[in-house]
Design a binder for these strands. Structure first.
Length: 573
DNA sequence: GCCGTTTTCGGCCCGACTGTTTTCAGTCG
């Protein structure tokens, strides 16, 4: 079984943690962390690159040494250096570093002085009062570690973006009502519209920062205040989120917004540019010597660095800085570009509303077209339609279309792709449809080659138009099934098939990296909500977020086209 | 360990908060 990029990255993170505990050169430690980040956000699998004999040292942050280590790890499943380190330092210690308040230095002291290896040892030591006897450890530190242990699982999981949205809304409403707040917004991965967010970074501009901090900690959603200073504070909310608030003056607001929006990698990269230009960039502004030459807005900061403005969704250090310098940034798609939805369900299968209700809701959104895509018979849990039921629905749609003024309802179906790659509905009836949306709902654990070929064979059927939720993953719930995405994308392009970006907040499938890959290969995308009720049409914005993170422009997405053009794209015969 | 429009050696982003200190180390983002 070839190693996943995630597993390679985890190995390097573990190595970095253990080396840090041993007190290794911090820049060497950073190099391993960087490598882990590069590998985990890489679209192709590193094991495939190795199999193809590609030069890994061309990857940013990977030199000859790391390239060699990666090859060894993939070929043997082991890393000799990690083995050596583990012989000196118990590997379990790297688990202790996950506790809030514990870093490499303290973990090392706990291990050397008290022999602590596990969370349990730590709890016992605290109970016996052995911890606060150590030099450098006191009452407060002990309490912080105890609460860190309690929160170990509670606050470590990243939350879905859609779950954060209402929390952020109420937080921002509260902040805007505080007297003296001039500007406020949520920065961090929330502003970058990442599919999941860790904590919420709130940034405010005000003259008297302390007054704002004091008002903030009275917010009634706050469960516990973690830290409180004169310009920043952080707290746990009852909803499970951690909030970090930072208050700056207006002349620093843009610089602080840039800094707190991140990503960390993007920040490091642009600060390097500042250094090259003999400037200093921090969260207060950009400086030539002692003199501040910008910082009020993000736009002026990018300009000072010789860069075009970079949208938050692109700030991941995945090529946006070079594109910005060359004025080749994409003109990202936006919600208003969307003309229709090509995936939704009615109560004929597992939806909760009628055909008419769904059509009416789509019409109210100003859509030109809506495809009704109820499930096929193989998906019995959703009461999939058989041939007879589909014919009845087709007739019903014809009657409805005769009455509709501004919307065209397209006849379609979400057809199961069976294990052998055939479609769960005979050709003669599929020919009656305007389009088909095809998807996998069974046999998730086939080996990668088989799963890939299953999909490619299904695409050989000229009735196949759209591959829905291409990897089947459910965020925080189910891993994607194993497919060769590059092969699928090339296969789709060659055959005139389209890949869906499913906008359900727990799917967002394709992910951002795959969207960019599709764009680079030239495979078309459709953004669909898979709505099971009229209100779920509003999920389109989450699909748009993901598309923007994947560098997609209006031209890359087929449901930005007028119906006439769309129909041409859907006709493979 | 990586990297180069000053450099193949000598740098590597930068600052706030906390606790336990007598001036700063550790942690975090």
């Amino acid at each position: 079984m070839p190693l996943h990029n995630r597993e390679i990255a985890d190995t390097f993170i573990k190595l970095a943690n253990l080396l840090e505990i041993e007190g290794a050169n911090p820049f060497r430690v950073r190099a391993y962390r960087n490598a882990a980040r590069v590998i985990s956000s890489l679209a192709p699998r590193v094991s495939d690159l190795v199999a193809q004999d590609k030069d890994l040292s061309e990857l940013p942050g990977i030199g000859d040494d790391l390239a060699d280590k990666i090859r060894t790890l993939i070929k043997t499943g082991e890393l000799p250096l990690l083995k050596q380190v583990e012989a000196r330092t118990p590997p379990i210690l790297h688990e202790l570093m996950k506790i809030e308040g514990l870093g490499p230095k303290r973990v090392k002291i706990l291990y050397q002085k008290l022999g602590i290896r596990h969370v349990k040892d730590l709890q016992t030591a605290i109970k016996q009062g052995r911890l606060k006897k150590l030099s450098g450890f006191g009452e407060k530190t002990e309490q912080k570690i105890l609460s860190g242990i309690q929160h170990l699982n509670q606050y470590t999981k990243r939350m879905k973006l859609a779950d954060a949205a209402p929390v952020v809304d109420s937080l921002l409403r509260y902040m805007r009502n505080i007297d003296g707040v001039e500007q406020v917004e949520c920065a961090g991965s929330y502003r970058r519209k990442k599919e999941t967010v860790g904590d919420l970074d709130i940034l405010a501009a005000a003259k008297d920062s302390e007054k704002i901090i004091n008002a903030f900690i009275k917010f009634d959603e706050i469960a516990a205040v973690i830290t409180q200073g004169t310009t920043r504070a952080s707290a746990h909310l009852h909803s499970g989120f951690q909030v970090d608030l930072r208050v700056v003056s207006e002349k620093s607001y843009g610089a602080a917004l840039l800094y707190f929006t991140g990503s960390k990698e993007h920040n490091i990269a642009i600060r390097k540019i500042a250094v090259q230009k003999k400037l200093k960039l921090n969260e207060y502004g950009i400086y030539r010597g002692e003199r501040q030459i910008g910082g009020r807005t993000e736009e002026e900061l990018y300009k000072q660095l010789g860069l075009a403005y970079i949208e938050p969704e692109l700030r991941e250090d995945r090529g946006e800085i070079i594109a910005s310098r060359k004025h080749r940034l994409p003109k990202l798609i936006s919600l208003k570009d969307i003309r229709g939805d090509l995936h939704c369900h009615t109560h004929a299968t597992d939806g909760s509303a009628s055909l008419e209700q769904m059509a009416k809701a789509a019409e109210q959104l100003g859509y030109e077209y809506l495809a009704i895509t109820d499930h096929s018979q193989h998906l019995t849990v959703a009461h999939g339609l058989d041939k007879k039921a589909l014919i009845a629905q087709i007739k019903k749609i014809d009657r409805l279309n005769a009455k509709l003024q501004n919307l065209v309802v397209l006849k379609s179906m979400e057809v199961d792709i069976l294990e052998d790659g055939s479609l769960d509905m005979p050709r003669d009836i599929l020919n009656e449809l305007d389009l088909t949306v095809c998807s996998i709902h069974s046999k998730f654990s086939l080996p990668q080659k088989k799963q890939t070929e299953r999909i490619l064979k299904a695409m050989d059927n000229v009735c196949f138009n759209i591959l829905a939720h291409p990897t089947g993953r459910l965020i925080n719930h189910r891993e994607p099934y194993s497919i060769d995405m590059e092969r699928i994308l090339h296969g789709a392009k060659e055959r005139g098939c389209i890949l869906e970006l499913n906008a359900q907040p727990d799917r967002l499938d394709l992910n951002d990296i795959h969207c960019k890959m599709a764009k680079d290969i030239g495979a078309p995308i459709v953004i669909s909500t898979d709505a099971h009720s009229p209100s779920q049409f509003s999920y389109m914005c989450y699909g748009i977020n993901q598309a923007r993170r994947g560098w997609l422009e209006k031209e890359n997405v087929i449901n930005t086209r007028p119906l006439k053009d769309l129909k041409k794209l859907l006709n493979r015969k």
